[in-house]
């Protein structure tokens, strides 16, 4: 299992992008997602699920995710999240 060692972010708040902020969480606390999106009713559940799946696929079980969505498509969300994971798990000062 990978774990998040420090706060990191990726993405922007430009139209069609998403800003992901990843922070460490207590072991066993699970994945907590705070999502701000212009389309909560239409895509809120899908975006949360994608974030959860992507984190799990990268071996992360505990995290605090703040996602500020500006209408991003799935591949954008995934790309930003993976970058944030790499930054959050890398040694401080790296990447």
């Amino acid at each position: 299992m990978k774990s998040i060692t420090h706060v990191a972010q990726a993405g922007t708040v430009e139209s069609s992008d998403i800003l992901i902020n990843l922070a460490p969480a207590q072991p066993q606390s699970g994945i907590q997602i705070e999502l701000a999106t212009p389309t909560p009713k239409q895509y809120g559940a899908q975006i949360r699920e994608l974030i959860r799946q992507t984190l799990t696929a990268h071996g992360i079980a505990d995290a605090v995710v703040q996602a500020t969505d500006k209408g991003a498509l799935d591949y954008t969300i995934k790309a930003r999240l993976i970058t944030a994971i790499e930054r959050a798990c890398a040694p401080e000062g790296g990447n």
């Binding site: 139209s15 069609s16 212009p38 389309t39 239409q42 895509y43 500006k70 209408g71 991003a72 498509l73």
Partner: peptide
């Protein structure tokens, strides 16, 4: 009628 296929994600 003209429209973008997507507006943001919609």
């Amino acid at each position: 009628v003209v429209a973008p296929l997507l507006r943001g994600r919609l």
